[in-house]
Amino acid sequence: MTSDASLPQALADIREEFGELDLRDRLTLLLEFAGELPELPERYRDHPDLFERVVECQSPVYIFVEVDDDDVVHLYATAPMEAPTTRGFASILVQGLAGLTTQQVLDVPDDFPLTLGLTEAVSPLRIRGMSAMLGRTKRQVLSRIAA
């Protein structure tokens, strides 16, 4: 288990949760996360233009990052019900990044998805989709700060 000071508590907790399970149960937990992906808030539902497609994911998943006046990042993601793995990845990030400041999000280690213990359960190729989601989230944060 890697330990890094920059990993926010919520993400560390999620990682620990996965780490305590065997491979099969990790998939079940990922499915639970998929079920917990929040619906988009009303104000964003009719604004597909705001969302960026994560093309590295095999299923259509779109993300949108908002930075509020207190410098707190809000990540919104949408993915179809037929893509539970992708929804699970998005849900982990939405929950794990909730309430973090822009700097805290930028400091999340890029290899966080690889440390969840899911690589074997879902395959390295699929995990790349989650890494891409994190990368794109950070890039959107940077562009919001710059704006």
Binding site: P84, T85, T86, A121, L125
Partner: peptide
């Protein structure tokens, strides 16, 4: 394609084979 789709509901009695984790050499 999605490794978890089967778990959300499948044909009764059907088993799952995942191409990434079961058909490919690791």
């Amino acid at each position: 394609e999605d490794v978890l789709l089967y778990e959300t509901g499948h044909i009764p009695g059907a088993v799952k084979i995942d191409w990434h984790t079961e058909l490919n050499d690791p």
